[in-house]
Each structure stands twice: as C-alpha cells, then as structure tokens.
Design a protein around this nucleic acid. Structure first.
Lengths: 95, 95
DNA sequence: TAAATATTTAGACATTCGTTTAAATATTTA
DNA sequence: TAAATATTTAAACGAATGTCTAAATATTTA
C-alpha cells in the first residue's frame, strides 16, 4: 500500500504508467521517452515494480515492462471507500 | 495534480482522509487521533487542502475540515484511463 | 482588558528522494 | 572468445519531506 502510493507520487513514474497504456515496452524504449539518464528510469521502473504497478519479464537481453493490474486495484479499492461518502454525505458536525 | 498526488502519498494524511469519512471535524479533534504534535497535523491538513482533498471552514475559534470532492475526482479521473486498459468492473456508486 | 483556548507559522534538523556518473551483470553477435 | 548491446547496481549529492519546539495569530471567556 505504502510503496504503491509512493510509486504513483512521482510525475515521471506516472508518465511511464500512461506510456505503458499503449502496450508493453522494454526499458530502453521507455527511457527514450524521457530526457533523463537510463539509470534514473531504471530506478523508477524498480519502484513501480515494487508497487505492483508494472510487471517485468526478461526476454533475451531485454526486459519488457507492462502494466500490472494488482497495484491499480489496490489504489482503486482504497478510493472506493470515499465513493460512498460522496454519494451519501454524512451530516456535518453541529453548527 | 502534482500536489494532490503528493498529498495522498503520506500515510498520516491518508488516515486523516479516512477519518473524515466519518464526518467533518475541527483540527483539534483530528489531531487527537494521532500521536503527533498539533503543528505537524496542521501541516498535513494544509497539504491536503492544497491538494483539494479537504475543505476548511472557520467557525469561531475552530477550523472545521471536511472531505472535498474535487481532489478525489481528479485522481479518480486519472485512474479512469487505466480502467479502460484493465476493464475494471464499473463501480455501483459514482465517485 | 487579560487570560484561556484553538490553530497556524517559523525555524531547525534528520531522513528520504531523485538525479547523475561510473562500474557491474547479462545476453547476443561477430 | 571478444566486442557490442541492454539494463541494473553503487556511490554521491543537493533538494524535498516530515517532524519537533517555540512563537505568533485569532477568538472566546472571565
């Protein structure tokens, strides 16, 4: 939970996630999208993986990253608790 | 966007949000829930407010905080892009 | 008006974070 | 096997973050 929210907190990591909506990509292709060193992107990918937001699959010398449903479900589930609040607002405290 | 994700990133701030599902509360009552100084909680409330996740309304010497729909909608909207990718089951209650 | 209460603001400090360059590991190709 | 390619790991460093205590601001009450 903690690590998943942390992973989503960074703008570069969110951009990586959005980029992967277009389909799985290897680390090099992902890095090309950003004006940032490859080690930095590698670090971001690691955090996204820790947060279960992406999956990594080794294919030869490449590592192919794709979106991982489980991290998104975790966050989505957390937000569901608030969905109820906004649909049925609790009365405010005494005025 | 950036500030909203940042606000959600901290565990204490997420606990405050969950606490406010139970209804609006003043700063002192919120602070009582945590083993942390009042200035720290005040700082967290400020960040949540900046992220449009809570509203602050002054009532006499108290400041009453309540959940703010707009920040939640922002984040929810961002996640919707992934919902299509994963084909999440549609929630029964709209956020 | 003075004291009490509620909350924030300011300043300090240790920890975490994001980035870089250099080096290491793994795989493919010549 | 050696060189080239893909990616990560390590080490360093400035910036951002979360926390605290002390002081300031605003409001209510005696």
């Amino acid at each position: 939970m903690e690590i998943t929210f942390k992973a989503i907190n960074d703008p570069t990591r969110r951009e990586i996630l959005v980029f992967l909506i277009g389909g799985a990509q290897n680390a090099g292709e992902i890095a090309k999208q950003f004006s940032m060193s490859k080690p930095s992107i590698s670090h971001h990918l690691d955090l996204l993986k820790q947060g279960n937001l992406i999956l990594a699959e080794k294919k030869g010398q490449y590592i192919i990253y794709s979106l991982n449903r489980s991290g998104f479900e975790l966050v989505h589930g957390w937000f569901q608790g608030f969905a109820h609040y906004f649909e049925f607002p609790k009365p405010k405290i005494r005025l």
